[in-house]
């Protein structure tokens, strides 16, 4: 157990994925240590989603190695799937299931899971346990999706734009939860378009563009290195300044 805890939660090396002419991911390597939250940032079309889908085992890389919790994803997929939790972008679960039914369904997928009641309580959904998903607010629904991701007590979480479209209160409550999950020693791979979210949650940030990692470091390092001059100016640099400085200001198409 102690030895396992030393190993990184996720280790990816030289990931490459080609779609026809387009090299969507071009040799990306990354490490997520135990209890660490890594944020992947990048404009639309940078290769962020393909990278995450390769790490989740949804897309097979053309080249590269992925090791999760000490096992190879390619050969020990089931072992890995039992121990990770995922919140995908733009997912809709059955609208006519209640919260309790939804969480119980996901519980049934795992050899070992937490009790649905415990997870529902943790996500502060106990008042809504018998409410159908179609009658929940966006923030409540996102908490249900997080409950489904936590039901197997995962050691590594993939959170793909977990707060997109939520109001500030709902966003803050999800941030608090992620901070707690980190404290419990869980590792998190986060993708987001909100720089503030990355600044608050991430221990390290990777900025991806054109299928490559173009910058890596703690939010503070990146701000200092990229926006050195700005810092001397009136206002403090933010991660948003870093992102725009490195990836340019022109609009990207998804």
């Amino acid at each position: 157990m102690a030895a396992a805890a030393e190993r990184p939660a996720l280790l990816a090396h030289g990931l490459t994925k080609q779609y026809g002419e387009l090299r969507a991911v071009d040799g990306i390597s990354l490490t997520v240590n135990r209890g660490e939250c890594i944020a992947l940032l990048g404009p639309n079309g940078a290769g962020k989603t393909t990278t995450v889908e390769m790490l989740e085992g949804l897309v097979r890389p053309d080249a590269g190695e992925i090791t999760i919790l000490g096992r190879s994803l390619a050969t020990d997929r089931q072992f890995v799937l039992e121990r990770i939790g995922v919140v995908l972008q733009e997912t809709t679960l059955y609208k006519r299931y209640t919260v309790a039914e939804t969480v119980a369904l996901f519980a049934s997928f795992y050899a070992q899971s937490l009790s649905p009641e415990v997870v529902i309580k943790r996500l502060q959904l106990e008042d809504k346990a018998s409410t159908q998903l179609r009658n929940l607010s966006g923030g409540q629904r996102q908490r249900v999706y997080l409950a489904c991701a936590l039901i197997n007590d995962p050691e590594l979480l993939f959170l793909d734009e977990p707060t997109t479209g939520l109001d500030p209160q709902a966003r803050r409550s999800i941030w608090e939860l992620v901070a707690e999950l980190k404290k419990e020693g869980r590792s998190v791979l986060l993708t987001t378009h909100y720089m503030e979210e990355a600044e608050v949650l991430a221990d390290r940030v990777l900025i991806i563009d054109h299928g490559k990692v173009i910058a890596e470091g703690t939010p503070q390092q990146l701000i200092r290195d990229t926006c050195g001059e700005m810092v001397k100016q009136v206002r403090q640099g933010t991660l948003e300044d870093v992102f725009l400085q490195l990836t340019g200001r022109s609009m990207r198409n998804g």
């Binding site: 039914e101 119980a104 049934s108 937490l114 943790r122 707690e180 419990e184």
Partner: peptide
């Protein structure tokens, strides 16, 4: 908040049966 206790793990309904109930 609830503590992270592996002892709270338990076996739940079988996936296939839960899916059929869902249908």
């Amino acid at each position: 908040m609830v503590e992270h206790t592996p002892s709270a793990k338990s076996k739940h309904g079988h996936a296939f049966i839960e899916m059929c109930k869902g249908r």
